[in-house]
């Protein structure tokens, strides 16, 4: 009963703030005399639902979202595989660390968005440069967190395994890799939001479909409503992605949470 009441309170307060903010926006938009009509929230939400079933450019909003997601997925998975492998091996094998860490540290501070011009020069303006940028954006947190996970392994565990006669590589696969998983997951979370943001930037620079395109196309024709409806779509998908990731983490790391 009490629990239920708590939940209702959460919803009420949340919805209340949203309502207050939206009404402020509505009033501001209605009274604004800017030459470029700033749309009301009602108009934006109306347009958003309109775009769910009507095409903007060549796709509905579903199609655009799928395009954007497919770009993120490709770059992200690539970064996941390479980043985790590089991070774990750097964390465990001193030779690998000595060889790759300096170069990695050299390139790491360059923000993903700063790669945009070079990526376009290298890969042209098709799909490949988008994959590359998303890869860069996700690769750094994956590598860093896998590395940190591998370095922070409980030394006692390793000592115990050694005593029992485990080889260096056995220790790596049986102890280091599993105990780095929670750290990798928090890296995956950061990587996902980085990838999502970079995808948007890449699409805004050049694309003919995707959510980033929706915004830029709206800008091109002075259509503020389309721009903000596009932002709404970005917010919703980003929200779902982040929470989906958290859910996955909770599922996969049941053993880890129980310990706490």
């Amino acid at each position: 009963m009490r629990h239920n009441y708590g939940k209702i309170r959460v919803v009420l307060y949340g919805a209340g703030t949203f309502l207050v903010l939206l009404s402020l926006w509505q009033i501001a938009a209605m009274t604004s005399n800017s030459e470029i009509g700033f749309p009301t929230p009602v108009a934006v939400i109306g347009r958003f639902f309109h775009m769910l079933s009507n095409k903007v450019g060549s796709y509905t909003i579903w199609g655009h979202t799928l395009w954007s997601l497919s770009r993120v997925v490709i770059g992200y998975l690539l970064a996941c595989v390479l980043g985790v492998v590089l991070g774990l091996t750097m964390g465990w094998f001193p030779y690998v660390k000595a060889l790759f860490k300096p170069v990695f540290d050299l390139l790491r501070p360059i923000a993903p968005l700063a790669w945009i011009p070079l990526a376009i020069l290298w890969f042209g303006i098709g799909e490949k440069y988008k994959y590359f940028l998303i890869f860069i954006a996700a690769f750094v947190p994956f590598t860093l967190n896998s590395y940190a996970g591998a370095v922070r392994v409980d030394r006692q565990l390793i000592g115990a395994a050694r005593m029992l006669g485990a080889s260096h590589s056995q220790v790596f696969f049986r102890i280091v890799v599993p105990s780095a998983v929670p750290s990798i997951f928090s890296g995956a979370q950061v990587a996902l939001s980085n990838a999502w943001m970079t995808m948007l930037a890449a699409e805004m620079v050049r694309s003919s479909e995707g959510i980033g395109w929706l915004i830029i196309a709206g800008q091109g024709i002075n259509d503020m409503t389309q721009m903000i409806a596009g932002m709404l779509a970005i917010g919703i998908v980003g929200f779902l992605l982040a929470n989906g990731m958290r859910l996955l983490e909770r599922r996969c790391l049941v053993w880890n949470n129980q310990g706490k």
Binding site: L113, S193, W196, M197, L200, A201, M204, G212, I215, I216, G218, Q219, M224, M227, I228, G230, M231, I234, G235, I236, G238, F239, A242
Partner: peptide, 14 residues
């Protein structure tokens, strides 16, 4: 929680 899911770059046009 909602605002943070919109990357800053998406705000540029408005």
């Amino acid at each position: 929680d909602f605002v943070r899911t919109i990357p800053p770059i998406a705000w540029i046009p408005i």
